[in-house]
Structures are given as structure tokens and as C-alpha cells.
Design a protein around this nucleic acid. Structure first.
Lengths: 215, 215
DNA sequence: CGATGCCTTGACCAACCTCAAGTGGCGTGG
DNA sequence: CCACGCCACTTGAGGTTGGTCAAGGCATCG
């Protein structure tokens, strides 16, 4: 197992050795194996061919997250469903099997944390690759606000303990563009900026809309 | 445990309940908890304060990957060491504990796969946020070539089963820019393009250098 | 042999970056 | 208590990279 775990490529022999029941499937080119939001019930191993994973924005902008080739595992997700769409590039053979998450305690927490970090990273790739400066800053503020809400705290004001340089390097912008964009959102009464390290969300719906590319 | 696993925020109580030995630490602002490449021996839980994770390019360009606040776990890595640097934003309290990876079989493979996907996603964030079109395309080709080598195959030619649109959407560019950049690398004899779906790596060292921002 | 789809190339344009100056808050020291 | 300097942030003017729009090449497939 360790030898297999240390490498990156797996195959049907590995699955049999680990007593993992699996079903082979043959898939035509351009076929969607699963779509973003589908309940995540299965994992897949590429036996041959190639797969792309991607995310879409409402207006059709697309971010391809990665490509998978023979030996690669894909389809990991948390209980909110698949975080992206998987589509074949050419005719491919896959092995599908049920997701098994039996392990308990800290191991499980670490696994789930890794999955969530990965899902967040995919969202960030969409931001970095396909969003405008305005959308990036709106997303950044909206996410911080939502994070507060998830923890049962008021969604505003949002504390910004990081410098403009940190925000810029997070969003793939310069500090000047971050500053200008924040000022712009302030002028438009979407947010308030009582201090450099504090943002008040005046119109959360609008902010979330801007983050997704809405007007 | 499930209740804890379903939420995102953890604390010292969770660790004690799971019998995880941990050490509290107080950290000043701007302190590097670990650096990219350090051997990854420990995991951290933010008790208070805030943390940024980032990657650097040789010339100093920086990509901030994410911010972590109270309740967040960070420090997961594979056996190649930490994939990024962790630094405090302000004075922070952390709980540190040893990484435990006892679980066997498919569970372990899935965990390691998730970690590797995450590390790859972080690399892609650096690409999307901070690299030029030329560097992006060079990285893309170089990674595909290296992937072949890792599997014991010749590093060239590289098969490109995906369309230019897929490559563009992967790199955060347009198909025109991808096409122009490939042509440019071809003119400079860094690669050859005998067919649209096949690239020959003529100067792998140069290509890898271009990917990292070298001339 | 024409149609189609994908790729390439060119000319122009705009979003964001660069460079530069100005503002404001805060800590220090006179 | 106020003046000063420092540093981060803001704002402005102009430039560059990569995007947009458009035309042309080339292979595949009826």
C-alpha cells in the first residue's frame, strides 16, 4: 500500500488488492461524468483517456481546474456535492467506485478539511483566472462576511487584519487597484470603510451579485 | 465527532475530546510559523488571531493562497514538506500538534490524493494570479512533460488531447493568446509543434526556466 | 468538393499596472 | 501638548499586456 500511496498512478490491480468493488465504464468524448452540484456519490479512476474538471460562472465564463490522465483519481467532494464538472476530452475508460469514509476522529477531520480547502482553492482559481478586479474585490469581501455568518456572528462589520498588499497578492492585483476598487464600492454605497481595516457591508445582496458577475 | 466534522471551526476542547496531544503557542505579528519546503511535521489550529499562507516566485512575486482565522486548521502537507509559507497577520495564539497518518488502504490514498490536489491547486493559484501569459504557457507545457517523466515515460513529445479553448480556460487566457504564445515559443526553438495536439520539448531546461520567470 | 470546426495571425482597444505624488493616522520625541 | 517622521493607504496620469474583433489557413468529414 505504501508503495502505491507514494506514487501518483493507480490502476484496477490496486483497487482489487485493496478489496474495493469497482465498475469499469467506457465514456465517449465530451461526455459529462458529473456536474457541479450533483450529489457526490462516486469516485473515479482514469484507466485510459483524459478528463478535464471545470467550473462555470452564470454568464458562461469558465475556469478549467485541472486535467486528469490514466492513473489519476478524481471525484472527491464533501457533502455539498461535486464542486465542479468533469468531462472527457476523448474516448476514455474509467473505473467507478463508491466513496468510503469510514475512518473516524482526527483522521476524518483532516480528510474533510483537506477536501474543503481544495474546494475553496478551486473557487479561488475561478476568481484568479476569470474574474475582473471589481468582481475579485466583491468576492473577497462577500466571502469574509459569509464566513462570519457561518460562525454565527453578525456578517458586518468585516474586520480586515491583513494589509492591502496581502489582499492584492491574494486576488492577483496591485495594491493600487485594490484601493481604487474599494473606494469605488464605497462611493456606490455597497460598502462603508470607517477605517482601513474595517469594512461595513451596506448591501450584501448587491455585493454577492457583483461577486458573481452581476451588473 | 460528526458534529465537529460537519462544522468548520475547531478548538482545544475538540482536540482534548479526541485525545490529541497539543501545545499552545503565542506568536507575534509577522512571524513565519513555517516556510515553503520545511519538513512538514506539525499541524496547527488557530485559537485566536489570523494567518496568511503564501507562495513566492524567485523574483519576489507573491501569491497569498488563503487566510485562516480562529477555528481553522492548517499545515497539512505531503512528504515533500510544506508547500507554502505561513505567517501571522497580528498577534495570534495557535495550538500545534503532530501529524498523525495512521489510517491504511484506500482511505489513506484518498487523503494523500486530496493533499496532492491541494498542493497542485496552490501552484495553479500562483500561476493564475502572478504569472505572465508566456510563463503560464511555459509552465503548462513543462508540467505536462514532467508528468510524463514521473511515470517513467519519455518527457517529449507531449500529447495535447485538450483544445486551445481548454488550455486558455485553464491558464486564465484567451485562445488567441495561447496560440500566439505557442507560436512564439516555436519560433524561439524552445518547442516544436508538428501538429496542433502534439508538442515537442526542444529545450526542457529553458522551458522550465521560462515557467519560473527566468528570461 | 464543399462545409464545418479549430487554429492561427493581425490590428486595435481597454483593463489593469506602473510610476509618482498626496493624504492621514500613529508613535515618538522635543 | 504639539511637531515630526514614518508607513500604509489613496488618488492621479500615462503605459503595457493581454483581450476583442475580424479575417484567413488547414484538416476532417460527409
Amino acid at each position: 500500500v505504501n508503495a502505491a500511496a507514494a506514487s501518483r498512478a493507480y490502476d484496477a490491480v490496486d483497487l482489487r488488492r485493496m478489496h474495493v468493488p469497482h465498475t469499469p465504464m467506457q465514456v465517449p468524448p465530451g461526455y459529462a461524468i458529473f456536474r457541479e452540484g450533483d450529489p457526490a456519490t462516486r469516485l473515479f479512476l482514469v484507466a485510459s483517456g483524459a478528463i478535464k474538471l471545470y467550473k462555470l460562472m452564470p454568464d458562461g465564463r469558465r475556469q478549467v481546474l485541472c486535467f486528469h490522465f490514466a492513473g489519476d483519481l478524481f471525484g472527491m467532494a464533501d457533502d455539498t456535492g461535486y464542486s465542479c464538472t468533469a468531462e472527457t476530452l476523448g474516448p476514455s475508460r474509467l473505473l467507478q467506485f463508491a466513496r468510503v469514509e469510514g475512518f473516524p476522529g482526527l483522521d476524518r477531520i483532516m480528510y474533510l478539511t483537506a477536501i474543503r480547502e481544495l474546494v475553496a482553492a478551486q473557487e479561488q482559481m475561478l476568481l484568479l483566472g476569470r474574474k475582473t478586479a471589481r468582481e475579485k474585490v466583491a468576492t473577497f469581501l462577500s466571502m469574509l462576511s459569509q464566513r462570519l455568518e457561518q460562525r454565527g456572528l453578525p456578517p458586518s462589520p468585516v474586520h480586515l487584519p491583513m494589509s492591502r498588499a496581502d489582499i492584492a497578492d491574494c486576488l492577483g492585483l496591485t495594491i493600487e487597484t485594490v484601493s481604487r476598487t474599494l473606494s469605488q464600492l464605497k462611493r456606490e454605497k455597497v460598502i462603508g470603510l470607517p477605517a482601513a481595516d474595517q469594512a461595513v457591508v451596506l448591501d450584501g445582496v448587491r455585493l454577492a451579485g457583483l461577486a458573481e458577475g452581476g451588473g
